[in-house]
Nucleic acid binder design. Sequence first.
RNA 1: GGCGGCAUAGCCAAGUGGUAAGGCAGAGGUCUGCAAAACCUCUAUCCCCAGUUCGAAUCUGGGUGCCGCCUCCA
Length: 465
Amino acid sequence: MKLYNTLTRKKEEFVPLVEGQVRMYTCGPTVYNYIHVGNARPMVVFDTLRRYFIYRGYDVKYVVNFTDIDDKIINRANEENTSYKEIAEKYIEAFLEDAKGLNLLEEKTIHPRATEFIKPMIDFIQRLIDIGAAYNADGNVYFNIEAAENYGKLSKKNIEELISGARVEVSEEKRNPMDFALWKKAKEGEPCWESPWGKGRPGWHIECSVMARTLLGDTIDIHAGGEDLQFPHHENEIAQSETLTGKPFARYWLHNAMINVDNQKMSKSLGNFLLVRDIKKEFDLEVLRFFLLSAHYRTPMNFTRDIMKQMEKGLERLYNGKKNLEYLLDKTEDRPLNEEEEKHLEEIEKYKQDFIDSMDDDINTADAIASMFELVKYTNSNLNEKSSKALVSKAYQILMELANVLGILYKKDEILEEEILELIEKRTEARKNKNYKLADEIRDKLREKGIILEDTPEGVKWRRI
RNA sequence: GGCGGCAUAGCCAAGUGGUAAGGCAGAGGUCUGCAAAACCUCUAUCCCCAGUUCGAAUCUGGGUGCCGCCUCCA
């Protein structure tokens, strides 16, 4: 499969460091607030990549960190008059809840917290000092970017220009204006840890470097995140890690594009952060997941209510295809495929191959989804009650395995309550007696309860909205 | 100023040299008591200009218009 590597700005054939294994790290949230739709994109996109790796038989080790100590968390704690720990705890819990709604494969995700890795961070920093790549300035420890080879290679930045751009914070402590903090000296009343340089806490960039290295090794296969993290965050991770180990830090860097809301950038000044849990009030989060996969991950997206409505309809179409197959599974008889059915199976396998080809091409989920629509159209048109159950079963299995790669179509029908079954029975009776008024009344009543009835030649079918 | 991205039908969105996937919406039809679902049919020459080529939405150059990063915001 090919992946677009930000480091080389090219699509490259993916070859893992160790055959059959993928070690992947995605920058996770700083837990000072609920996650918004922009945070959700890398979570969903790279979760899908991980699912695809699993589908292709790789053994995947997947890490998404929680930054649980940081200025923003401390500020938040002060605002709410509580501790940074409680803030972190609260929003980690909220994240996990949203993650569940987004159907992220949480049970297979390793979630390290920065504060659990203070010791290795201190060791890491000390080592950088030892080799002259970092220096202690009155309790603050900075990384000396001149010690790094090719600083700026990921974001293609030129150091002199960055400095002359004068947008960097000027600090008398720093030897070079571009040097960045590895360890921050504690201010009065701030949470802190003991270190060889006094009380303080780690800087942001060092967290990811240390957690990735501790959990995944010196060189990881894939490092992913939003494209806004390219600089300075990822650039600094590379500088620290590669200076320390002398090895490549990550072999493939993947970055997703940003999301606008109603054609506007989400920003603090506009106060237009759209939280995942706000979206949940109007849409099932599966629709959000489907939306996030409806465009290629490196294409900027725009989030609007209307587009979500469209996505909801599209997803419903796939669910109907699934339901139709489930219905046939129940109605068809087991027998060997005839010649015509063998051809159907070949066609169905072809759609599956199209799906795989699309995913192989830098996770082209938009194209992969199109293959699913085509598959559904094909089975809707060509399979019926007279088909062989073996064929129906195979088609269903393929549809579901593709859906599982994208993390969609996972909702199962619940068993209907006795009371509702009785109503359906009553309506069928009414229809038999051509009492359509009563029949329609019952249908409307059930619709209010979120149950859609469909009269088909084979009898009444129902589904949830 | 530096780096980068995007511009395809009413809307969303694939397609990176051979004569425009898919979805939503819309129109007509089949089926149906009516609906729903499903199926069939219909709806674009790809921002503009020039060039390369037998041939370009796809490559090159120049415009125009959006946008992102360069401020610990995914």
